[in-house]
Computed example of a mutant assay.
Amino acid sequence: MRVLLHVCCGPCTVYPLEVLRSQGHEVKGYFFNPNIHPFREFKRRIKALVDFSEQKKFKVDIDRNYGLTEYLRQVVFHENQRCALCYDMRLEYIAEQAAAQGFDAFTTTLLYSKYQRHAMIRQKAEALAQKFSVQFLYQDFREGWQQGIDQSIAMDLYRQPYCGCIYSEQERYDKKMRKPKSKLGT
């Protein structure tokens, strides 16, 4: 299958790309992440992704528009639903791109993270697949969590310490705000 892979960053792409390629899929990446804050972090993630794509001969389109304003317009006063809103923004865009570019399916590196809400991602992506008449390829990439970390370190890729949004940045560095890991990955 021709698969459009939504990528949030280089390190989170390592394992999913390896798995998808090993399954015989032709994979192209798409970086669309209006949630990332601050601007320097956005730029660092793009650079790491470019480095990764060059090392792995991985074609990736990069939306270099810093979309923080639009992201904040969606989530301000809805902070408790921010992940769902963020998934909606990113996955809808990717599903639409997959359909418009004639891909057989789309998926996302968000399914690699232990910190993302997999059931919610899957539900939203499956609904978008129907909306845009393109298949959503679900795969739980979390089993390769450590392998992806080890490979990204060996590749000397910048590895970010939080999901990217301003709220997760606060949770990462403000110990009073941290959520227990076991509740996040379901």
Rank of each mutant, 00 (worst) to 15 (best):
Tyr71Gln: 09
Asn33Arg: 05
Gln146Phe: 12
Lys43Ser: 13
Thr109Leu: 05
Met120Glu: 15
Cys83Gly: 00
Gln74Lys: 13
Gln160Cys: 08
Leu111Tyr: 01
Asp63Ala: 06
Ala125Arg: 01
Ile121Leu: 13
Ile36Ser: 01
Arg90Gly: 00
Val3Gln: 01
Arg117Ala: 14
Arg90Met: 07
Arg21Tyr: 09
Ala127Tyr: 00
Ala95Val: 04
Arg64Val: 12
Cys86Thr: 06
Ile94Pro: 00
Leu91Phe: 09
Pro38Ala: 03
Leu91Ala: 05
Ala99Trp: 05
Ala48Arg: 03
Arg45Lys: 13
Glu79Cys: 15
Gln81Leu: 15
Met155Thr: 01
Thr69Met: 13
Pro34Phe: 03
Ile46Gln: 05
Ile153Tyr: 07
Phe136Met: 05
Arg172Met: 10
Asp88Cys: 06
Asp140Met: 12
Glu92Arg: 14
Asp140Gln: 07
Pro161Gly: 09
Ala127His: 02
Met177Asp: 05
Pro16Phe: 08
Arg73Tyr: 12
Asn35Asp: 02
Gln116Ser: 10
Glu54Ala: 12
Phe52Gln: 08
Ile46Pro: 04
Ala129Lys: 01
Thr186Arg: 11
Asp61Lys: 10
Lys59Ile: 14
Gly185Asp: 02
Cys9Arg: 04
Leu72Tyr: 07
Gly67Glu: 08
His37Cys: 06
Leu20Pro: 02
Thr186Leu: 13
Ser168Glu: 04
Pro34Lys: 07
Phe132Ser: 00
Leu17Gly: 06
Phe31Trp: 10
Arg122Ile: 07
Ala127Asp: 06
Ile46Phe: 06
Thr186Asp: 11
Leu184Phe: 06
Leu91Cys: 08
Ala105Ile: 01
Val14Asn: 04
Glu92Asp: 11
Arg64Met: 10
Leu72Ala: 11
Ile36Asn: 02
Asp88Trp: 12
Val60Thr: 12
Val27Met: 15
Gly29Phe: 08
Phe31Gln: 01
Gln123Arg: 14
Gln139His: 15
Ser53Thr: 14
Thr107His: 03
Ile62Lys: 08
Arg90Lys: 06
Tyr115Pro: 00
Asn33Tyr: 04
Cys9Asn: 06
Ser113Trp: 03
His25Val: 09
Lys28Asn: 10
Cys165Ala: 10
Tyr158Glu: 09
Arg45Asn: 03
Ala100Gly: 11
Leu128Ser: 00
Met1Pro: 15
Ala105Trp: 02
Gly144Asp: 11
Pro180Lys: 03
Pro34Arg: 03
Glu171Thr: 07
Glu126His: 03
Leu68Arg: 10
Ile36Arg: 03
Leu157Ala: 08
Glu92Met: 07
Ser152Pro: 01
Phe141His: 03
Leu20Arg: 07
Cys9Leu: 09
His37Trp: 10
Gly24His: 09
Leu110Met: 15
Gly148Val: 11
Met89Gly: 06
Lys56Thr: 05
Asp174Cys: 10
Ser53Met: 08
Asp51Lys: 15
Val14Arg: 02
Gln160Ile: 02
